[in-house]
């Protein structure tokens, strides 16, 4: 799943990307990057990053809204 797909299916994740201080929101190449690429590019700690993301998704009830 590309960053563009993530942002398109769950626009509320924009806040998460901004909070992590990445340039993904509005980036013209977002459809070519996976979440893995983001973690690599910004040298995030993968485990910590995914934890933060899960926490954000849960706090925003993003999963329930897909049903």
């Amino acid at each position: 799943m590309s960053v563009a797909d993530v942002l398109k299916s769950k626009p509320a994740t924009a806040k998460f990307f901004i909070s992590q201080r990445t340039d993904c929101v509005g980036c013209r190449l977002a459809r070519f990057c996976t979440m893995e690429d983001v973690i690599k590019t910004y040298e995030f700690d993968e485990e910590k990053y995914l934890q933060e993301l899960s926490k954000y998704i849960l706090s925003q009830n993003l999963i329930r809204s897909t049903e």
């Binding site: 340039d23 190449l29 070519f32 990057c33």
Partner: peptide
């Protein structure tokens, strides 16, 4: 081939 899209965007 763009290998580092991020750097190019910057």
């Amino acid at each position: 081939t763009i290998l580092k899209p991020h750097d190019l965007v910057r």
